[in-house]
Nucleic acid binder design. Structure first.
Lengths: 337, 337
DNA sequence: TATTAGCACTCGTGAATAATGAGTGCTAAG
DNA sequence: CTTAGCACTCATTATTCACGAGTGCTAATA
């Protein structure tokens, strides 16, 4: 469908455009990329490719700019060429030993990604449905409130304030925790069922509190399932593509909405490995001018996603290698410092 | 030192400049503010005031712009006129009953401040030195790691991963927590001392773990003492003063550095009540074009600071009333929803 | 002495115009 | 199929010019 030379032209245009940010003309290609052919020849090819939807002109008689379709080919060719590394399997286990837990490590990772890529780094953990419970604890705050602590596999810690229907002593609460903790190690769905039975049976005296706690636990495990960290965004100021205040704003607004971004990542990071989503391929309209590169892996009831978000004309090769590098650093415990 | 009319001119210039954002000329003042006097008269006053450092001209024969000194007078006059409310005392107690704890409430507060003020809201808690311990808990993660949970007065929860020198069972850890918890309710400085004695005495068998834990506790209590939440920054795009990419960038870069910002707030929010820091009065060079309005109150070992950061020519009156309003909402438990 | 009208002067802003040059499409020759 | 040549397009940049808001100064006035 595409001749060898057409492919070459496409890749060259993308490459040149990523480098310069300016429309690339036939002369440039002839001089720097396809040295054998004259500008006129290439002009003909470009006209064809424009008709086919790979290139476009911002205005009559300007150079050509790659479309998302061209980027797609560029990226796919690159990914094919790149060593397919199967890293990432099982690395989460090692992370959770980090000083500040999985979350601390990810917060560091996102920052590192920003620094190294010169774009915006992201790191997220999402709890898969089958995550296991490690421990539950109730801490009495005052006569009508206690703190519910939930520790999940992978060192994920949640805490919520729960209103107590009646005053319960710390001893009773500890007893309660201890009973619930006998369920540690089971999947949440199982725990949930067992707890329900407990409440109507043994624990009937604390039914109210247990009910609230159950609701909170449900919220924790079903609700905000993905925790996302975003690295420094200052780099964006130096990206020429975002000098335009309008484009900057669009990107910024979505970066600020943790929830939206998290939803996107959940959606994109479904399968393990490296993925690239380019411009209009993004579900969010705010990301039409951006590309997202992400590397995701799942293990033990959690999925971890590292990502970089930048302009469409980002240095994909470098970003991918940065992702790899950071993944590597986390694995080997760099976050411990 | 300042005549009645000079004061009037200053206030008028600031007022007009805040409204329009453009240099204000003698004609405007004569027509809209000091109706009795002619433009020529006001021109003379303005020339004097410029010499005295209250006004300045961006270029020869343009209108005048207020200096920080003029803003200062404007704000001070306003604060004097405003009802001095002593709200804030004791409200923290009520907050900690919030569903997601003090921190959840503050995160919501900062967002609310952004929304209502149209600038950027901030909310911070800082632990004062004399904060009290509520509870400590160790949770075994694997043979060489456990999670250290620290709950402080006010529902502040910290957790850290601690490396265990040798494998300790959950039972032993629980026993350990229980012993340490007998110290709950005391100030950290006291707890620290007592713990030291314990370690060399009763707890000698767990000296290593206790040592690490002690170090972590110290880090938690001495180190990152202030936790800061920043509300949405999207509003900044609509502030005319920050259309200039350079100014925007300066502000943004410091908003992103939680630590820097926290340090500033710690420094500014020393005394209870409402404070305004204008432009060059700010310690940070990035804030030369901004003003910070904050409302701070301390109680029970923690100090809480609400603040709004915006352009120098912000609507101070509105921002102050918004701060008041949000403080009020938090108090009455709005965050519970 | 304080105030004000009049006037010449300054200087940023915005529109209009022109020159520049990179790049194209098309045609005709190799 | 390839390429040189040429006329044409159009964003960009610089230049010029008129406009107008605002000032400082002086001289007249209450």
């Amino acid at each position: 469908m595409l001749t060898e030379r057409q492919l070459e032209v496409i890749l060259s245009v993308v490459h040149a455009f990523i480098e310069s940010g300016e429309e690339v003309g036939s002369r440039t290609l002839s001089k720097r990329y396809l040295k054998g052919r004259s500008a006129a020849t290439i002009r003909n090819e470009m006209a064809d490719l424009e008709e086919m939807g790979y290139l476009m002109q911002p205005y009559t008689s300007a150079g050509r700019v790659p479309t998302t379709r061209a980027y797609r080919i560029f990226v796919d060719t690159m990914l094919q060429r790149l060593p397919h590394n199967e890293r990432g399997r099982g690395w989460i286990k090692r992370i959770e030993a980090h000083r500040d837990g999985l979350r601390g490590a990810l917060s560091k990772a996102s920052e590192m990604l920003s620094q190294l890529s010169n774009y915006v780094g992201m790191a997220a953990v999402t709890q898969l449905a089958q995550i296991r419970l490690r421990k539950v604890d109730f801490v009495r705050i005052d006569s009508s409130h206690c703190l519910l602590l939930v520790i999940l596999e992978g060192g994920i810690v949640h805490h919520r304030m729960v209103t107590m229907p009646c005053d319960l002593s710390q001893d009773i609460l500890e007893d309660l925790s201890r009973r619930i903790n006998t369920l540690a190690g089971y999947e949440w769905s199982e725990v949930r069922e067992t707890l329900r039975n407990y409440i109507s049976g043994e624990l009937w005296r604390y039914a109210d509190l247990c009910g609230s706690a159950l609701a909170e636990l449900d919220a924790i495990l079903a609700g905000e399932r993905t925790k996302l960290y975003t690295g420094s965004m200052s780099n964006l100021f130096d990206v020429p593509d975002f000098q335009d205040i309008g484009k900057f704003r669009a990107l910024f607004s979505i970066l600020e909405q943790e929830n939206e971004l998290a939803k996107l990542l959940e959606q994109y990071g479904m399968k393990d490995g490296i993925g690239v989503v380019i411009g209009e391929e993004n579900a969010a309209p705010e990301l039409q001018n951006c590309s997202v590169v992400l590397s995701s892996s799942s293990d033990e009831g959690t999925r971890t996603i590292l990502g970089v978000i930048g302009p469409k004309r980002m240095n994909y090769e470098r970003v991918i290698s940065v992702l790899d590098r950071v993944l590597c650093d986390i694995e080997s415990g760099e976050g411990d410092e």
